[in-house]
């Protein structure tokens, strides 16, 4: 695996790709906030939001299949909410025994769990769409327009530049460890403590390599005229299409919220 495959951006020329990154970031946040305040059990509204995200994914030339597949990364976390099914007081739907526990599924618990899951699942899809249709430096740059402090944006830009380099460095370390870890059948490997020590040395090694790289990078940047400020040659102007996209999205969110109150 190449570390460059970390990048989530999928180049394209669709309408969604072309919207100003600042607008896209704000609209993504708007949709996520709108999802968060949807009431429990508002299935029709959840379906409306899903229709929105499917339409947007199709318009973006990625297709909803891509977004759906990526959205599965949130699945492990639903463990955190799953127990609410059994503990929220409500009418019992089913009852079963697990080891020595008597578990009762309540209707209120099931509705609460499904609502948390859906809100989260719908929200992550908007975030995926943003990352897939916007080059990361543009996202970082629009953070600057949203008053995120310069130093944090600069760190984020550097980090983005170097996660691929250090990611590959790490893969080399991991490969080197694997190559030296031949196992004779029937014999045990080192103790957990010893393994942890190896991992600790790898982290230390990675740190020293990263630190020395940062010294070289700084020297190289100085040589090219760096004065502590990042400049961009991409001007950010709001075009008519950006205003129209923003207007349509705000109306969509308004309708979703109206539906949530009325239904």
């Amino acid at each position: 695996m190449q570390a460059i495959s970390f990048d989530q951006y999928r180049a394209g020329k669709s309408i969604i790709h072309c919207i100003d990154p600042r607008v896209k970031l704000l609209l993504t946040l708007l949709f996520i906030i709108s999802n968060l305040i949807l009431p429990d059990g508002g299935w029709i509204v959840f379906a409306l939001v899903l229709a929105c995200i499917i339409a947007l994914s199709q318009m973006s030339s990625l297709g909803w299949g891509y977004v759906f597949k990526r959205s599965l990364i949130m699945i492990p976390f639903i463990l955190a909410a799953v127990t609410i099914i059994f503990t929220l007081p409500g009418e019992a739907i089913a009852q079963f025994k697990l080891f020595s526990w008597e578990l009762t599924i309540s209707d209120a618990g099931l509705i609460r769990f499904a609502s948390i899951f859906l809100r989260s699942w719908l929200s992550i899809q908007f975030a995926i769409l943003l990352a897939a249709t916007t080059p990361f430096p543009d996202i970082a740059h629009s953070l600057r327009h949203l008053y995120v402090p310069q130093i944090i944006v600069a760190i984020i830009l550097f980090m983005y530049r170097y996660i691929f380099v250090l990611g590959e460095e790490t893969q080399r370390l991991l490969r080197a460890r694997a190559a030296r870890s031949a196992r004779i059948p029937g014999r045990k490997g080192g103790s957990v403590l010893w393994r942890a020590k190896v991992a600790g040395n790898m982290v230390g090694q990675l740190f020293v390599r990263s630190y020395e790289r940062s010294e070289r990078v700084y020297q190289a940047m100085l040589a090219r005229g760096y004065q502590g400020e990042f400049l961009t040659v991409v001007p950010h102007h709001m075009h008519q299409k950006d205003w129209i996209a923003a207007l349509i999205a705000v109306i969509a969110v308004g309708l979703i919220q109206a539906a949530a109150i009325l239904l």
Binding site: A154, I155, I156, F158, R161, I163, E169, L206, S210
Partner: peptide
């Protein structure tokens, strides 16, 4: 700034 950026990448890696 380059140091902190690369350190952030280091933590990630």
């Amino acid at each position: 700034i380059p140091l902190m950026g690369i350190m952030a990448a280091f933590i990630f890696a």
